[in-house]
Computed example of a mutant assay.
Amino acid sequence: MNQLWNLKPLTPYRGPLPGTGRKKPNPQPKPDQLSTQDYQVALAIYNDTVADRLPHAVELNDKRREGIKRLMGQLARKDLQGFRAYVEAFVTHAPPFYFGGQ
């Protein structure tokens, strides 16, 4: 019987880069460090990507900020490029049900 499911996944290496003594840079901002402009850009990314398939988000309110922050915290890439990739993947691969189809 294969015991692979009992193995723990490796954690990301956060120590110095081998042979350099320097830490690896972390260019991705944490979702809790997003600026107001980042939220506006995320809203624009969403509206541009969904085009006419879903209603546009017109106003940036606290509920939408919290939703963007929560979603970006779960993405592999926690920045606006990761957010764009997620929305594009959703629009491309989601079943028609999400867009009012059957």
Rank of each mutant, 00 (worst) to 15 (best):
M1T: 07
M1Y: 03
N2Q: 09
Q3D: 11
L4C: 05
N6M: 14
N6I: 11
L7F: 06
K8H: 13
P9A: 08
T11P: 00
Y13C: 05
G15L: 08
G15P: 08
G15I: 11
P16H: 09
P16K: 12
L17G: 07
G19T: 07
T20Q: 13
R22P: 00
R22L: 15
R22I: 10
R22Q: 15
K23W: 08
K23F: 15
K24Y: 04
P25M: 01
N26G: 00
N26T: 08
N26A: 06
Q28L: 06
P29D: 02
K30D: 06
K30G: 01
D32G: 00
Q33V: 00
L34W: 05
L34V: 00
T36H: 12
T36E: 15
Y39Q: 05
Y39D: 03
Y39L: 15
Q40E: 15
Q40C: 04
Q40D: 13
V41Q: 12
V41R: 12
V41Y: 06
A42S: 07
A42Q: 04
L43Y: 00
Y46W: 13
Y46C: 09
N47E: 08
D48A: 15
D48I: 05
D48M: 10
D48C: 06
T49W: 11
T49L: 08
T49M: 07
T49V: 14
A51I: 01
R53Y: 02
R53P: 01
H56P: 01
H56A: 14
H56G: 06
A57M: 11
A57I: 13
E59H: 09
E59Y: 09
L60I: 13
D62V: 04
D62M: 05
R65M: 14
R65F: 04
R65G: 05
R65L: 09
R65D: 07
G67A: 12
G67H: 07
I68M: 08
I68S: 01
K69T: 14
K69S: 13
K69V: 03
R70E: 09
M72T: 13
M72P: 08
G73N: 00
G73V: 04
G73M: 04
G73E: 03
Q74V: 00
Q74H: 06
Q74C: 03
Q74F: 01
L75T: 10
L75R: 07
R77P: 00
R77K: 14
K78M: 08
D79C: 01
D79L: 00
Q81F: 06
Q81Y: 09
G82V: 03
F83R: 03
R84W: 02
A85V: 00
Y86K: 01
Y86M: 02
E88A: 15
A89E: 15
F90R: 05
V91P: 02
T92N: 09
H93Q: 15
H93R: 12
H93G: 12
A94T: 10
A94H: 11
A94C: 07
P95M: 10
P95W: 10
P95Q: 14
P96K: 14
Y98L: 12
F99T: 05
G101I: 07
G101D: 05
G101P: 05
Q102H: 12
